[in-house]
């Protein structure tokens, strides 16, 4: 193996960590909400899209990117909490199927609103030139946007880990995820913990949206759909409802996609997605409950 091969592998590893990190953040957002209230929120992608449009409008209004980013993230958080209050609270105790269909409805309503009120077409988003640059480390040429994505993912994961294991409210969220009824018996408010789960998922979707838009410099009404579908696959792969599993699933999926794109022979490239998904299915055959199953699932099995 020559120096060039090693460079290529390292290069693709950076790409995979950057992409996988974004999937991990999205999958975490799905997992946080699922673990608390059993809802697979397909409208999670629309939280990304909202954050993307806020970034776009900030660019148009001349708001600097460093201010646009927190505004975009905050808007995704607020949108997530509003979604919970308006759409999900009334059906909170309904079956999983009802919750799922509700989330599809929310997603479609928002998509139609984006198409009619903003534009059905892709809109450019102004991102700083710096994000388009790349830096050279050794023999590696790494895009600044990739480094930004990796750094942002790391910061988010460390902050979330600290919140979930050290802060009273984070611990309460884990308690509620394991046994919601008993958590309430401790005095943990159902409304508060569910609203907090949505706010957290909005925060994660907002950060993921900033990273996604930074790579593409555009936003369209369906922007959130594909990454959230991938994040959903990642969350299942990791073990639905398990937070560590969601992170692991996100990174594994990122690696599968990037490595297949880089190393699959060109004749095979058009089959990249099905091959990647087959690998996911194979892993699920071997580990049906995911890479790191949720505790509640283990409890049910025991």
């Amino acid at each position: 193996m020559g120096a060039n091969d090693i460079d290529l592998i390292l290069q693709q590893t950076v790409n995979a960590v950057a992409l996988g990190g974004t999937y991990a953040l999205l999958a975490l957002g799905l997992a946080v909400v699922f673990s608390i209230m059993g809802l697979i929120n397909f409208a999670h992608g629309e939280l990304m899209t909202i954050a993307g449009y806020v970034l776009m409008y900030c660019g148009i209004a001349g708001v600097p990117f460093v201010l646009g980013v927190p505004l975009a993230v905050a808007s995704a958080m607020l949108a997530a909490m509003a979604m919970e209050r308006v759409a999900f609270r009334p059906v909170r105790n309904a079956s999983g199927a009802t919750l799922l269909v509700t989330s599809f409805a929310v997603a479609m309503i928002l998509q139609v609103l984006f198409q009619n009120l903003i534009s059905p077409r892709s809109q450019p988003v102004i991102v700083p030139d710096l994000l388009g640059h790349s830096i050279t480390i050794g023999g590696l040429v790494i895009g600044v946007n990739k480094l930004f994505a990796i750094a942002a993912t790391l910061v988010m994961l460390v902050a979330l880990e600290t919140f979930m294991t050290r802060q009273k409210h984070g611990i309460a969220m884990r308690a509620a995820a394991e046994d919601f009824a008993i958590a309430r018996l401790m005095g943990i408010r159902a409304n508060t913990v569910i609203a907090a789960a949505f706010a957290l998922s909005g925060l994660l979707a907002g950060v993921a949206a900033v990273l996604w838009v930074s790579q593409r410099a555009s936003v369209d009404p369906l922007m959130g759909f594909t990454p959230v579908l991938k994040a959903f696959i990642a969350a299942i792969l990791g073990g639905l409802g398990s937070l560590r599993g969601a992170v692991a699933g996100g990174f594994v999926l990122g690696f599968i996609e990037v490595l297949l794109a880089a190393f699959l022979p060109s004749d095979w490239q058009e089959f990249r997605e099905p091959i990647g998904l087959s690998l996911v299915v194979l892993m699920l055959v071997l580990r049906p409950n995911g890479l790191i199953p949720a505790a509640t699932l283990q409890a049910q099995k025991a």
């Binding site: 884990r174 308690a175 394991e178 046994d179 008993i182 958590a183 505790a295």
Partner: peptide, 9 residues
């Protein structure tokens, strides 16, 4: 009944 401690905490 059944203790129901938070096993992951």
């Amino acid at each position: 009944e059944g203790r129901r401690v938070f096993s992951t905490l």
